[in-house]
Design a protein around this nucleic acid. Structure first.
Lengths: 349, 349
DNA sequence: TTGTACGCGTTATCAA
DNA sequence: TTGATAACGCGTACAA
């Protein structure tokens, strides 16, 4: 009797039921319980239901550590991020969690410093010590060679969300940032704008560049000139948007519309234009990107491009779980959506 | 030779070093390695340094699963939340993560549905199957008997952040919401306001009630009457703030200042007042609570009360880690801070 | 279709 | 101050 029932009754903190308890109650061996729990075949319907009943009765849950130790599968997914826009991470995480719960996985979150020289070592030790089933990489982490290298070295599957450029052996989920920015720019042009300013996103975020290129492509396609002076560098932060906005609005010939690389920066432009006494959207149209909470909370509310962050996160988890076997790289595109609100209108002039 | 060195050299995915590898390299037993790694006493300085060198050389990290399986300590902390305000959760999580990293812990995040009838079972199975070291509870979860009961049943330590009311055997970290709201109200009174509206927070969040009481106390202390009609119910959401704001602004005798239970609702009041063509702060002062991102992103920026969410989170982790031994309940108060920005001014009349 | 026995990497007990 | 060895709970060859 190596494994006595846990009903020793001494301590008050009742120990959770183990696989042995379930096996005994169902009158089968632990292997059979294991088979049922892991949904393997070769179990008769009768025993399966008997086991399931025992599981239910004892409210048995397989111990995550024993499971991870005995098998390669840890049922743990890692979410790695750095420098998160609050709304972005929150939405992402919600999507990941929802899918994890459905699949019986748990989520380990880790915030990293992309600047750290030990980044590679940190990532490597994280995934090895907890043998993560896989990890989800967000920008800008997903484009750092140090991170990718550590993951490959540890042989840990990963999915990148909105990475800058394709990578051999990597699986990505993304929207078409180029086309999304193209669409937004085309919409502004359609409104009658001919002088459309642009605030670029963080140069390390791949999506930022794709958006800028989409903007330029739309300009070109409409036969509009690309004007260097009304394109300024931002870094996705509110502060950087403020500075960029002030610069654009200080111009002798200011743009009639400003398209910012994300909502935070667009919100900053809104604030800046108050200082310049500009009526939005009558005297200036402003557009953002992401459709984050901010976009709906400022006044006027922002015209923006909705990224289905939550769905992207869910897709990433799904890919990770499937990926275990097939090693091929895979790319999944989700659709964006133009959200027109009160911050844009035809130019007055 | 039960434990061969991992240098079998067949696969490409090099297995991480185990405690046996370290022991062999340092010429000691695994128990000694364990002692060093876990910072236990009774190890000579000489062997300690030798072991440490081996650990370094092999970049050994204890396997989290083996650890969790063998001991009671899992080095895993759970963060449970529901219905998160994006900014709130993001800030909280950042604080938790930072402290976890320092202490060598990992974070498991779980989003729960406070309405679910299976809530208790979910919580219980979560903590038992992963034998969490402890969990951090955020509002409104921290005030639900079902959650508390499940945690106690599983004998898992927990720390509550900003709970409604004290609870025997619970450890809490909070600010003094009552005093914070009192301070804000007193500030508005000091500005000359005599008719100050209030938008209550979600009735399930304890802090919401404390804030309301603080508001009333400040009124009373200043000899100002409490006016029922200018206090309306909100639910912390932007939408609810919008409805509340519209109601207040539609009043024949509208308030000269509105104090909202959080920033999201205050931002909504700002938006609503645009529709009523009210100049902020000249014709209406607006104050929020939390100093979330939103407070700085709207225009004019919100006068609000800063809650040190990040610090609160760090404190919670620290309490959890220490708590392992002492079982006494404990309460920790952190300081709030009045942040005066452009949304408040003396009344014009 | 079902069961036995062993190993996963760590901590802990007890003896040396 | 150290070390041999038994758990911890589960998955899985291999056997029945």
């Amino acid at each position: 009797m190596k494994h006595p029932s846990s009903s020793s009754g001494s301590s008050d903190a009742q120990k959770p039921a183990s696989i042995y308890d379930v096996a005994k109650r169902a009158g089968v061996s632990i292997k059979t319980v294991s088979r049922v729990v892991n949904r393997q075949s070769n179990v008769s319907e009768a025993t399966r239901t008997r086991v399931l009943a025992a599981v239910e009765a004892l409210s048995y849950r397989p111990n995550i550590f024993a499971r991870g130790l005995a098998s390669e599968k840890s049922f743990l997914i890692g979410l790695l991020y750095d420098n998160p826009s609050a709304g972005y991470v929150a939405a992402l995480q919600l999507g990941v969690l929802s899918r994890c719960r459905d699949e019986g996985y748990h989520l380990i979150v880790e915030s990293l410093d992309a600047q750290s020289p030990q980044l590679s070592a940190q990532v490597h030790s994280l995934v090895t010590e907890s043998s993560l089933h896989g990890v989800i990489l967000t920008p800008p982490l997903c484009d750092l060679p140090a991170v990718i290298e550590a993951l490959k070295r540890a042989n840990t599957p990963f999915v990148r969300i909105a990475p800058e450029k394709p990578l051999a052996g990597a699986s990505d989920v993304r929207i078409d940032d180029h086309k999304a920015a193209y669409d937004m720019t085309a919409y502004l042009i359609g409104l009658g704008h001919k002088r459309i300013g642009f605030i670029k996103g963080h140069p390390d975020h791949g999506a930022a560049n794709a958006r800028f290129e989409g903007y330029r492509a739309a300009l070109a396609h409409a036969g509009l000139p690309f004007i260097e002076e009304i394109c300024v560098q931002g870094f996705f932060s509110y502060q950087s948007g403020m500075e960029a906005g002030e610069r654009l609005l200080s111009l002798k010939r200011r743009p009639t519309a400003i398209f910012a690389g994300n909502d935070d920066m667009a919100a900053a432009v809104l604030a800046a234009s108050q200082r310049f006494n500009l009526k939005i959207p009558q005297q200036l149209s402003v557009a953002g990107f992401d459709d984050s909470l901010v976009a709906q909370v400022v006044w006027p509310r922002l015209t923006t491009c909705r990224q289905p962050i939550r769905e992207m996160a869910e897709a990433a988890v799904a890919m990770l779980i499937q990926k275990s076997s097939d090693e091929a790289s895979f790319e999944r595109h989700l659709d964006h959506e133009l959200v027109v609100r009160e911050s844009t209108a035809p130019p007055s002039a």
